[in-house]
Amino acid sequence: MKHLTRLALLVAAATVLFPFLAILTAALQPQSNLSPGLEWPSDPQWGNFADAWTTAGFGALLRSSAVVAFGVVPISLVLATLAGYGLARSTSRLNGPLFALLMLGLALPYEAIVIPLYYDLRAVGLLDSHWSLILPLVGAFMPFGVFWMRAHFESLPKELVEAASIDGASHWRTLVSILLPTARPALTTLGLLYFMWAWNQFLLALILIQDPAKRTAPAGLGEFVQQFGRNVPLLSAGTIIVITPIVVVYLFFQRHFVKGILQGAVK
């Protein structure tokens, strides 16, 4: 049984690592090679990364993606934490219907709101700005974030809140001083998910930001594909440039991410 488990883990790891290896080997092939295979090139063309960086202007695109991601994550975490705490501790009769209404947002596709969202943002003069992505993404991420934080706060023992109430602590003091220290794994996991979702956003960035200099890296990569659709090594190099920040952030926070996913009780 132990060997079967190890074999299953090796197969799962291979299915994840194989696409990255294929993209890397393709990115190091000569640009004249229109159909690169999976063989490691005898003369790796590391200059493809520099060519892709300068040709697509990934410096400005990555900077724009970072502004959007680091704008979305803290705002979303604060709002999701406050809403999750309120729904978890509220005894109002409207608690259930309000939560159910909020959860409907999980089933709302971007395609259904992008057109009215475009006209609304144009009316208030936010098109072609980073706020045209930050504000809609914060709203789009709220249903999942509230669901996540509500589940965390409901899993905590009620004795924690009752003891704080007996000691005279306010709701704000209870949240900040007692409950938030236990929520670090949950907040870290949610923040990583928010970062990945905001960084990978393509459709809204493509429609709401028309200025190529202000678009995010995935949207810029889409234009890069249109211009160099047959240059597979250059496209592969550009793809690696776009996904590298997400991989680095995940590797840095992977322990907290796994701990947040597996957290089921307070020790």
Score class of each variant (00 low, 15 high):
Ala27Asn: 05
Gln29Trp: 04
Gln29His: 14
Gln29Ile: 01
Pro30Ser: 11
Pro30Phe: 03
Pro30Gly: 04
Gln31Asp: 04
Ser32Val: 05
Ser32Arg: 09
Asn33Glu: 14
Asn33Gln: 12
Leu34Gly: 09
Ser35Ile: 14
Ser35Met: 14
Pro36Phe: 08
Leu38His: 10
Leu38Asp: 11
Glu39Tyr: 12
Glu39Val: 13
Glu39Gly: 15
Trp40Tyr: 12
Pro41Val: 07
Ser42His: 10
Asp43Tyr: 04
Asp43Leu: 09
Pro44Glu: 13
Pro44Thr: 14
Pro44Cys: 08
Pro44Trp: 11
Pro44Leu: 11
Gln45Asn: 12
Trp46Lys: 03
Trp46Thr: 02
Trp46Met: 00
Trp46Arg: 01
Trp46Ile: 02
Gly47Met: 01
Asn48Asp: 09
Phe49Ala: 05
Phe49Thr: 04
Phe49Tyr: 15
Phe49Ile: 03
Ala50Lys: 03
Ala50Asn: 04
Ala50Ile: 10
Ala50Asp: 11
Asp51Asn: 09
Ala52Asn: 09
Thr54Leu: 13
Ala56Gln: 10
Ala56Val: 05
Ala56Lys: 07
Ala56Thr: 08
Ala56Phe: 08
Gly57Cys: 06
Gly57Glu: 05
Gly57Ile: 02
Gly57Ser: 08
Phe58Lys: 02
Phe58Asp: 03
Ala60Thr: 10
Ala60Met: 00
Leu61Tyr: 06
Leu61Gln: 11
Leu62Arg: 09
